[in-house]
Amino acid sequence: MSGIFNSSIGRKFAMALSAFFLMIFLLQHFAINILSVFSPEAFNNTSHFMGTFWIVQYIFQPILILGVIFHFVMGMVLEVRNRNARKIAYAKNNGNANSTWMSRNMIYTGGAILLFLGLHFYDFWLPEINTKYIQGDMSGLLPDGNYRYFEELQHKFVDVWRVALYCLAFVFLSLHLLHGFSSAFQSVGANNKYTRGLKGFGKAYAIIIPLGFIFIALYHHFNY
């Protein structure tokens, strides 16, 4: 048991578990963000709850950050090991004949998502930490007495270049998920009569969720 993460299958299993966790988080993130389109009030209330509830802040948030770090670090470790497994490349390798572009380039789509997370943390997470834990303002209120979350969100999507970067990042997220969703199930040993349906569901998830995030960014850009 102790050596499981030193084995190739153990590492795959660990990657899959962290992927499941991140995919569930992504769904929850989307569910909250889409509220900003339909009801700014509901978005404000939910954001305030998520931003101040101690279980979310002190338990889920650190687990999430560790999950993200683990997924990327393990991805890098696997990439280095895999490159060492073939030190001389083929002069001609027709990868398109037997596998999808997404499955062969997870490290690059993952790297693009990592860069995006840097921007995303700079835009939202660091200002949140500054307001709440450095300035000590846990009220979530603007001087006019309204919650600040919806207005902050709208402000971020004024800049067309930021919106373009967000949209591009969500395209990379979609490409990553198009392989990652079904791959995670295969890694935990789930390949059975439900696999075909699961792959279909995975493709829908990989397209609908990033497309939804793109819609949210564009909606706020054009409606501010």
Partner: peptide, 22 residues
């Protein structure tokens, strides 16, 4: 068998499915 496979220096499967096709 998995231990020996790892010791031989084979890479980690990332489920591309190329093996099944070829």
């Amino acid at each position: 068998m998995v231990k020996q496979m790892d010791e031989e220096g084979f890479g980690n499967c990332t489920n591309t499915g190329a093996c099944e096709v070829e």
